[in-house]
């Protein structure tokens, strides 16, 4: 059963490549796995067909399936199942369901400095001027958050959603999708200065690796005041229960 051996060897290497994904949550990218497997399968095939006996042994079951009169039943079954499987795959969408691969960095490195409102902001040291009020005067802070909420629902919620989950009315039409603020992956990982830069400069202000040409996010510096941006940032963190990264 050299055919079985061939299939098992290939499967073994496939599982080996998948292991980092299963056990460690660090999957080897599928684009690379398919490349690796392409060459692994070919190498295994080459090794198993060096001699004529080997090659015959490997292909004997396939040959028998097609030619052997005694295998008529199996043959008919296979020739029905294979097209049906293909039909199902096509119907199911097959590989097309996966999001296309891209080289875009979601959160690219920010520039050290950015300009807006006639001044230069140093993103390494920039802080939210309202953040300190949170401890000094919780009541005043609450009203600031509320004002930020108004800014959000006048400007942002169309794309980022009323639950801040990135699923606003327009979201389905956009690619890349608007990011959610909920969850631990986005603003929870970022400093407020980074979020400020993103709102200020929007998609056009992204460096090239961030895909500046495909992001639909507008640059808000012409629409919002500096204070409004800081307030809406307060709201984003407050509503989602995230705390800004401070280091």
């Amino acid at each position: 059963m050299r055919l079985l051996k061939f299939a098992l060897t290939s499967l073994f290497f496939y599982l080996l490549l998948k292991a980092p994904g299963f056990f460690w949550d660090k999957p080897i990218p599928s684009s690379l796995v398919s490349m690796y497997m392409f060459f692994i399968v070919i190498t295994v095939l080459l090794v198993m067909t060096i001699t004529d006996e080997g090659a015959r042994g490997l292909f004997a079951p396939i040959r028998a399936l097609v030619e052997d009169p005694s295998k008529k039943l199996v043959r008919n079954a296979v020739f029905v199942i294979l097209p049906l499987a293909a039909v199902f795959l096509a119907y199911d969408g097959g590989g097309l369901k996966a999001t296309p691969s891209e080289l875009r960095a979601t959160h690219p490195a920010p520039p050290p400095l950015t300009r807006g409102y006639g001044k230069t902001f140093d993103l390494a040291t920039l802080e939210n001027p309202f953040r300190k009020i949170e401890k000094e005067d919780p009541e005043a802070f609450k009203s600031l958050v509320k004002e930020g909420g108004e800014v959000y629902f006048k400007n942002c919620f169309f794309c980022h959603g009323d639950k801040l989950d990135g699923r606003g009315h327009y979201a389905h039409a956009l690619d890349p999708k608007p990011l959610p603020f909920t969850g631990g992956d986005t603003i929870a990982q970022l400093q407020e200065s980074y979020v400020f830069w993103r709102i200020l400069k929007g998609g056009p202000g992204l460096p090239r690796e961030g895909g500046s040409s495909i992001s639909a996010m507008p640059a808000w510096e012409k629409e919002l005041t500096e204070e409004e941006i800081w307030k809406v940032i307060l709201f984003l963190y407050d509503y989602t229960g995230n705390t800004p990264r401070s280091w």
């Binding site: 949550d25 660090k26 999957p27 990218p29 684009s31 999001t99 891209e102 080289l103």
Partner: peptide, 11 residues
């Protein structure tokens, strides 16, 4: 590496 968004987020 060429990554799908899901892979990018888990890496």
């Amino acid at each position: 590496l060429i990554l799908t968004p899901e892979e990018a987020s888990s890496l």
